[in-house]
Amino acid sequence: MGMIILREVTVRYEDGTVALDNVNLTVEKSEFAFVVGPTGAGKSSLFKVLIREIVPSHGTVFVAGYDLTRMKPSQAPYLRRLVGTVFQDILLLPERTVWENVAFALRATGVASSEDKREVPRALAMVDLLDKAKAFPWQLSGGEKQKVALARALVINPLILLADEPTGNLDSQSSREVMELLLRVNRQGTTVLMATHDPFLVGSYRKRVIELNSGKIVRDYMPGVS
């Protein structure tokens, strides 16, 4: 059974806009896939469906074994502990150190503070930022900030990582570093779905590409495989 399964999923907003139109998709455990498409193609709506911020107007969604269309809103937080998220707007807390930003996720999910000493360094080590633990976000580069956001998503040990344009605001060197980290996370068994506008990035890695346009999957392919 796939880690993410969408069957005939349609998302129609109140103003009548169709964000996703009869989408069928399966992403396997430990798979890495790019989600590409122009602005308004439905990439962000797809991610919101996967963390149950949006409930589809039609169809069924399974994520990590949970049927999201039947899930009560009060259960959504428990799903989100299995699905880490990283966005283009990095959302770090400016008055807190790197360590505190990462530990914030543990606190918010009710993990005892005694776990910090074990979990925070582990997450920071995964993104190569252990030496910046005491730094504040304003002391970091764009790429480093994104790595902190990644560490915050990873510290709760998610099964799936959703990265929505994580390299959107980064230079090419930082983009490559973040990309390498995502691949490293994927190699450790986490399913990764990464939305991007960057065709060069997609072309540089031989990974599955799901192409969306006007809410429909127009192509779903593996580069180099005919």
Binding site: R81, G110, R152
Partner: peptide
């Protein structure tokens, strides 16, 4: 709003928020 958004994304329950 940023803290609340982060809390919701990492899986904090409504009462934790």
């Amino acid at each position: 709003r940023n803290e609340i958004r982060i809390m919701q994304l990492v899986g904090a329950t409504a009462w934790t928020v």
